[in-house]
Amino acid sequence: MVQSSIDIGISFSGAAGNQFGKKIYTTMIPYKSIERFLVVFQDVQRNVNKARVKEIADYVLKGTNTRNYCFLSAVTATCRGEIEFDDQSKSVKIDINSVLSINDGQHRVEGIKLALNNLRKQVNNAKTDEEKLKLEEKLDYLENMCIPVVIFESMDKQYEQQLFHDLNNLAKTPTKSISLKFDNNDPYTAMAKELADENSYLIKYGVETEKTQLRENNPNLMLLSTLRNTISFMVCGSENDKSSVLTFENYDDIKATVTETFNEIFKALPADCNDRKKYIIGTAVTLQGIGKYVYTLLNDEEVVNWKDYIFGLQNINWKHDNKMWNGYGGSYDPEKGRFVFGGTGGGINGVRNALIENNHPIFSR
């Protein structure tokens, strides 16, 4: 048995190996131990983005709910101090005076710390014993979660800087549509994916789930991200549902309404509405603007039957050269032979306003 060179340390189960001549260790560190060991040194890291930290903290706290699909990837760090591997117990032992310098994952670590602090504040501010007990159980659950950590044996500053550079330089951010394709936490994204596979009209006209934009030869009507945002505009009137109008608790009821709405919309639109050369319908701005128009109808007390107004969309001239659209967030470009929106937000509101002012309900069908 090899004698340990570390007199006082903390051990975590793990493994050891080599990479490009450097000793590396992998282990799982509980969230409650993160604050003790994982440290950011500015000479080998960028400045922390507080907005990103808050976003991750919210994500971590959501992960404590019953229905969750929350995951955090491994943090990469360099041990500044003594570290060793006990082959007999299969554990990584870190000297009590050592720290792990974070090379990749500082926002994940700071997000976990913030989540823990926020939950501890909730425990202290609990108004009843029952509420406090539930929060304490939630805090204990969170504190004992673990994050995988890849640890490189002590390296000088130049190596740590290169490690940070390489880890970030080799990483590639997936396209927005691909990210949405694999996101199961956002109810709007979940609904968009389900409708893209289930709704006969969306299947017919097509939803692009991987590309970031629709080129001329792409037969699909819209991107998955456009469908997701259109649903969000229908339900809450915005791309971001800050008031949680849609939740997984009321998901089925709202999905039924959204499905019915899409059916009514596509019945009223031209049969060849996916012809982007002919109509403005194939632009993300128009589709989202229609979604926002639907929200206006559903929340207008003077509208007796919103379907009458949706049915009236069949009398709208959706062609690029229709002068009606001028002034509603864009203008016709004769060189391109298309109506061009000046901006996303202005275009969405422009389409909504154009329909409010020019669309008329049809009461008999």
Rank of each mutant, 00 (worst) to 15 (best):
N65K: 15
T64V: 12
R52I: 07
S101G: 04
N125K: 13
G111S: 05
Q106R: 05
K93G: 00
S98Q: 09
N117Q: 13
Y69C: 08
A51T: 14
L100D: 11
N118H: 06
N117H: 10
A77H: 02
E55I: 04
K62L: 08
V60M: 01
K54R: 15
I102D: 04
D86R: 06
K50V: 13
E82V: 00
L72D: 07
Y59D: 01
N117M: 12
I83K: 12
R108K: 15
K121L: 11
I102N: 02
V109F: 06
Q88S: 14
L114N: 11
Q88D: 13
N68Y: 09
Q122E: 13
V75E: 07
E82P: 00
L116T: 12
K121Y: 09
R120V: 03
F85V: 07
Q122S: 13
R52L: 08
I112R: 04
A57N: 09
R108T: 15
N103E: 04
I112Q: 00
T78A: 11
Q122N: 12
N124D: 15
A57P: 06
R52G: 01
A51Y: 05
V75H: 01
Y69M: 08
S98P: 05
S98K: 02
R52C: 03
V109D: 00
K90Q: 14
V60I: 13
V92E: 03
I112W: 05
A51G: 02
N65I: 06
N117I: 03
Q106K: 06
T66Q: 14
T64H: 02
L61I: 01
N117C: 02
L116D: 00
I56Q: 02
K113L: 14
L119K: 03
K90P: 05
K90V: 09
G81P: 08
K121H: 07
T66E: 14
Q122L: 09
V123Y: 11
N117L: 10
A115S: 09
K54M: 03
H107S: 08
G105D: 10
D104Y: 05
S91I: 00
A115G: 09
T76H: 04
N65C: 11
G111D: 04
A51P: 00
S98Y: 10
N97L: 11
G111A: 00
H107C: 05
L119V: 07
V99I: 13
S101H: 00
I83F: 09
S101V: 14
C70K: 06
D95Y: 01
F71I: 15
A115T: 04
E110D: 08
R80I: 12
H107M: 10
L119Y: 01
I83P: 12
N125H: 12
A57Q: 02
Q122T: 07
E110H: 12
D86P: 02
I83S: 08
A115N: 08
N97V: 04
F71V: 15
